[in-house]
Simulated scan of single mutants.
Amino acid sequence: MTQPFDSRVGAYALIIRDEQLLLTHWNPRHPGFEGAWTLPGGGMEPGEQPAETMVREVFEETGFRVDSDGLVDVHSYWMTPEQRLDGQDRGNHACRVIYTAHVTGGEMAVEQDGSSDDVAWIPLAEVGSTPRLDLVDQALRLAGLSDRLGAVRTPTERIAEQDVATEPGRGGDR
């Protein structure tokens, strides 16, 4: 018998320009977790297609308008109840659709009142020493770009992006 669990589909952008990777700083404002750098992107809205989600989320989190260059892959991530930040007592299956994209317009801007509190172009050679979520490494691996992380490797945060409320114990289900 299968135990109940939540699921979340999100779409993310792998954007490289001038040997730099566009990252956002994911900060769920949760005690005990300072946040980490990740790909711009997030959860799908009802009726939205994954590519539309990616474009919308990149704009919301970075201020840049982007076009998709194509699907990289889909990465599945299972979170145990203990890994969740929202206090739910069931697992969560995150399905992360990853695209490559390029900037077509806009100006860099930090998301206001969202789960991201910074945005930056990080040199690819420094990504390996940047505190980051596992999604960054997975996307680079799936795109065949793992070798561009740089020589110094810090471990990734073993937690997936998730919709969380700012108060522990309250789920942020989408």
Rank of each mutant, 00 (worst) to 15 (best):
M1Q: 14
Q3G: 09
F5Q: 10
S7E: 15
R8G: 11
A11P: 02
Y12M: 07
L14F: 05
I15D: 01
I16Y: 04
I16W: 01
I16G: 02
R17H: 09
R17C: 00
Q20W: 00
L21T: 08
L21A: 07
L22Y: 06
L22M: 10
L22R: 06
T24I: 15
H25V: 05
N27W: 04
P31D: 08
F33K: 00
F33Q: 02
G35K: 03
P40I: 07
P40N: 07
P50L: 11
V55D: 00
R56P: 00
E57G: 01
E57H: 02
T62R: 05
F64G: 01
F64R: 00
F64M: 03
F64E: 00
R65D: 02
R65L: 05
R65T: 11
R65P: 00
S68C: 07
G70E: 12
L71H: 11
D73K: 12
H75A: 15
Y77K: 12
T80A: 15
T80V: 09
P81E: 13
E82M: 12
G87D: 03
Q88N: 12
G91P: 03
N92H: 08
A94K: 09
C95S: 14
C95Q: 14
V97S: 09
V97R: 07
Y99G: 05
T100C: 05
H102W: 02
H102P: 02
H102R: 15
T104M: 01
T104H: 00
M108I: 12
E111G: 06
D113I: 03
S115R: 06
V119M: 01
W121D: 05
W121H: 01
A125G: 04
A125V: 14
A125D: 13
E126P: 01
V127G: 06
T130V: 08
P131Q: 10
P131I: 11
V136I: 08
Q138G: 07
R141Q: 15
A143P: 03
G144E: 06
D147P: 01
A151F: 06
E157Q: 07
R158G: 04
I159H: 10
I159T: 13
E161A: 04
A165G: 13
A165C: 14
A165L: 03
P168Y: 05
G169D: 06
G171E: 12
G171R: 14
